[in-house]
């Protein structure tokens, strides 16, 4: 599999006063296209920091990150924004839908900012809503939906730009077991369709649903494990 994201000796250092925190410390790895990774580790091990850099909303303090063959350090703020809008899909723990917008509009937000949005954006958004089981709720506001439904809208939103990378930071952290397994089923489907998914979690049974697991500790790789393929 060709690599979508290549990280070489990436560090992310936070300095507060005279304490220095190395959230990522010499991290190197390649994420291949179509792979489904769970990123695990204890709290503070650098999982979110890694995902933010992968999603191009944060920059490494040192080291190199290449996404789809482009070196991040060479891109300015506008180019990174454009890259996110075109190739990255985000799913957050707290759903992060925009409260003033309805379901359809929320799914469409990434297209608002594209220079050359596809003409059939609205049909695609409606199809994606249908796909995540919310085809009949297009004009509902986020607050009128349950947590599981909101997260499904967020997944539909992450798919509207047909991204090269789907980044999910503890997407089931705020959900009960039933909705958690529904969301994970949905991610399985996306993986089967060939999407590249990087999922941060600290729950072992969630991690067990991925193809492979990357264990982080103190900002670097502790272990890499491969799950048995699904039947």
């Amino acid at each position: 599999m060709p690599a979508v994201a290549i990280l070489k000796d990436v560090s992310r250092v936070y300095t507060m006063g005279n304490t220095v925190v190395r959230a990522l410390n010499g991290f190197s790895f390649e994420f291949g296209q179509g792979e489904y990774w769970a990123i695990m580790g204890s709290s503070g091990s650098g999982k979110s920091t890694l995902l933010n850099i992968l999603g191009c909303i944060d920059r490494p303090t040192s080291g190199s990150y290449q996404v789809r063959g482009q070196e991040m350090a060479t891109l300015d703020d506008d180019e990174l924004s454009e890259l996110r809008g075109l190739h990255i899909g985000f799913v957050f723990q707290s759903f992060n839908l925009i409260p003033q917008l309805n379901v359809l509009e929320n799914i469409l937000v990434p297209l608002f900012y594209q220079e050359d949005p596809p003409a059939d954006g609205e049909e695609r958004a409606a199809m994606l809503a249908d796909r995540v089981g919310l085809g009949d709720r297009l004009d509902h506001r986020p607050l009128e939906l349950s947590g599981g439904q909101q997260q499904r809208v967020a997944i539909a939103r992450s798919l509207i730009n047909d991204p090269a990378l789907i980044l999910a930071d503890e997407p089931t952290g705020n959900l009960d077991t039933q909705t958690t397994s529904e969301i994970l089923d949905l991610l399985d489907e996306l993986h089967d369709e060939g999407k590249t998914i990087l999922l941060v979690t600290h729950e072992a049974d969630v991690g067990a649903r991925a193809q492979s697991i990357l264990h982080l500790k103190d900002g670097h790789i502790d272990d890499v494990a491969h799950n048995r393929p699904r039947p």
Binding site: S81, F90, Y113
Partner: peptide
Amino acid sequence: TREIGIRRALGAKRRH
């Protein structure tokens, strides 16, 4: 603030 973060993550440039 959070909405701004969301929009930026989803591709909004500063000028947007």
